[in-house]
Amino acid sequence: MNSSVIVFPGSNCDRDVAVALEKLQFKNQMVWHKETKLPKSDLIVIPGGFSYGDYLRSGAIAGKSLIVSEVIKAADSGRLVLGICNGFQVLTETGLLKGALLRNNNLKFINRDINIKVLNNNSKFSGNYKKNQILKMNIAHNEGNYFTNQEHLKELIDENLIAFKYCSKDGDVNEDSNPNGSLQNIAGIFNSKKNILGMMPHPERMIDNLISNTDGINLFTSLLK
């Protein structure tokens, strides 16, 4: 499977995700933000970090960049797009995913391991997980507080488009297990066709027991099916 990782000035998880993709047998290419054409790719990853200094709003400037207009076209034609952390923020700024990521409700940059629950394993991104499986992943963000309007929230619930929710290590989804104030503990969502996934946690940091765990591997291997 061919993958492309978009690199913005300020991206800092681009190489991590490339390592994960290559380890799991993707043929990966890095694509600089000034490129105007995407290489042939089945999966496009918008990585974490920052983009353009996160000026205006995180992801706002990147969302209007040349390469992202190509990503939008590819996504519209059904190609798989994964946005992690800043990548999720970029995807909401483009409108490919609805809603927005606000400043964490405690106004602090949060960098720690948290637990998330797999709400929907019926997607190209999550097929190798079990429904309700609890994963341990790392989050590192300042704006991860997901917000959307009531109408879209209803759509997310009715169409089963919430991919992951923050939970306790026993799987309880409540205020105590919500690190950043996200609406309904939402940690990741799909678009209605489920070819786009945006998530704040970092699966690419969870691919090796030597440095963390392997809870992120299934997200990448699901895509290979």
């Binding site: 709003r57 706002a60 909401t92 700024e93 927005a100 606000l102 917000f147 959307t148």
Partner: peptide
């Protein structure tokens, strides 16, 4: 509408 404000929030 295009850039300065995010109309969702």
């Amino acid at each position: 509408k295009k850039l300065l404000a995010n109309m969702i929030i």
